[in-house]
Design a protein around this nucleic acid. Structure first.
Lengths: 168, 168
DNA sequence: GTCCATGCAAACCTTTTGCACTATA
DNA sequence: TATAGTGCAAAAGGTTTGCATGGAC
């Protein structure tokens, strides 16, 4: 189909290729294409987003292959899987300037902002250790309203019981 | 079916009844039964767990009703929904001694331990505020190995690239 | 030439919804 | 009695899998 190969394989895609070879797995054109899309995305694309972006570059790759490649990318630790309570997963490569970071998620517009806090990192380690737990990874997500949505007058739904329960 | 009513409705279930009446919704036997199971569970039951526990008490309630009741319980803010990356949701009532707490999740045995940290709470508020974000709720989850699993010799899967990438 | 990946469609699993029937207020 | 809930089964939506074909090594 696509006789015109990409000008050159990006360093990140090459890293993924190395992982595949380490595992004795073939480096296919589809795997490189999916990896390239993920590594060129600076947001948190869903599988549909990835399929769409592949199509924009003239690549028609089946969803099954995308899922299977994402699985490999996650295993390689080059990509992280996220679940922002939307009913589907999002993916994000770990090769940005902020390899470890947390997320602020706007409940109005869905925008995801990243932040980094060494203090959170330290706290998490301290908490785990004090309980004899060996931490592997952690995630901190803050849900609320981003600044633009607050200015636009957005309000968070106020349901729940009228009298908040404080059972402490 | 169940002519033998529970000895008396628990205070928590009664609270839920109040919420329902506030909303102009009927307080049904099924809703009370589901609420009762959730409020008597000190772990994080899934919908299947809840169905199972209802059956153990002689209640046969359809899954649809369980889902619909859980939705009401979550709306009432008496119950929280969790997603520990298992492919389904878990539920936990907020009426324990620790209304606000975070989770340590063992990747070996799946055990969920709770912890509380005022520092995390403070940090989260500080981070949000410094970015003009209005926080509504947050979640911190630490994944790793619990003490018993470590003692049993469990190891976390070491996949990924042999040479960890530190792109900072 | 062998092995594995791909693509399509069907299967899967959790969750949601439509509808006839029943219970609540 | 009007209104809303229940249960069943079907649908929905994201993700996984089986299988025949085709490409990588």
């Amino acid at each position: 189909m696509n006789t015109q190969n990409p000008p050159q394989v990006s360093p990140f895609v090459r890293l993924f290729g190395r992982y595949l070879r380490d595992q004795g797995l073939p480096v296919t054109q589809q795997r490189e294409a999916v990896a390239d899309v993920v590594f060129s995305s600076d947001d948190h694309p869903s599988v549909d987003d990835i399929e769409q972006r592949l199509r924009e570059v003239g690549e028609r790759i089946g969803k099954a292959t995308i899922y299977r490649t994402l699985d490999l990318l996650v295993r390689s630790k080059l990509v992280e899987e996220h679940d922002f309570d939307e009913g589907f997963k999002r993916y994000e490569h770990r090769l940005s300037r902020q390899p470890e970071h947390e997320h602020l998620i706007c409940q109005e517009c869905g925008t995801v902002t990243e932040f980094r806090s060494h203090e959170v990192q330290r706290l998490q380690e301290e908490i785990a250790r004090s309980r004899g737990f060996r931490p592997n990874r952690y995630k901190l997500e803050i849900y609320g309203l981003c600044a633009p949505c607050q200015e636009a007058g957005a309000e968070l739904p106020r349901e729940g019981l009228t009298c908040p329960i404080e059972t402490v």
